[in-house]
Design a protein around this nucleic acid. Structure first.
Lengths: 125, 125
DNA sequence: CTGTATCCTCTAGGATACTG
DNA sequence: CAGTATCCTAGAGGATACAG
């Protein structure tokens, strides 16, 4: 049994490319967009209505980023005026489970975290 | 079975407090700190050595945030000069599984994402 | 050794106006 | 309808110096 590694096991190891992908996929609006598109394909303004707080600029940026990463798909329907449909890709669907697990943890532990915050803040009086 | 909800199921739903916790726990340095502390308790400069890229300021901020959220614990050992030990809490340990699942997804799909990026960038020629 | 305190830069993202 | 183009600002985070 070699003892060369400073850490016993590195399931949590995270390299620069991994960090970048993590940021692109868990950023401020991506999860909301994914939530909508996981239910059904949607058009640009449909997404805006579903996510009222997002600005046009940020939504565009988020969609481009997700498209570039192969998470969503963009189809232009050449009507007048044009319609653009966004769909989640097979790759995008594989994100669902890990994201669900993560959000489940968040939901389950938010109360405990809030108690910890109260204690911490009270101690700092 | 009521059909009041616009979305079929909202496992991906994310509220403001959830988003905040997500940001505090998945931010730039938190995962690296967690990775170290999951292996064993560590002192401040031990963490610095384990994570060479982090600045003193950011490490302090990260540790304070994690401590406030009940993820890590801080113990001051009153020697001369003082030593401060950081440990992961039971709550912190529960983060491990969801984070592992997430990072596993990242690792497993980075190649496919990179192919998607190449296609996207090539198309934009 | 374990931090604060400043200063400074850089980028995400909002507001708003315009376009094919 | 589905975007671009600008302008602007708040906050994250680096570099550096100092302190208990």
């Amino acid at each position: 049994m070699p003892e060369t590694s400073p850490r016993a096991h590195d399931a949590l190891e995270i390299t620069a490319p991994h960090r970048e992908l993590l940021d692109q996929v868990l950023d401020k609006w991506s999860l909301e967009v994914l939530a909508v598109l996981c239910e059904s394909p949607s058009r640009f303004n449909g997404l805006r209505r579903a996510i009222p707080a997002v600005t046009q600029k940020s939504l565009t940026a988020t969609l481009r980023r997700l498209e570039r990463n192969g998470i969503v798909e963009r189809e232009v329907v050449a009507t007048r005026p044009v319609a653009v449909e966004y769909r989640i890709t097979p790759l995008g669907k594989t994100m669902r489970e890990p994201v669900d697990v993560l959000l489940a943890w968040i939901r389950d532990h938010t109360p405990e975290v809030e108690r910890a915050r109260d204690r911490f803040d009270a101690a700092g009086t």
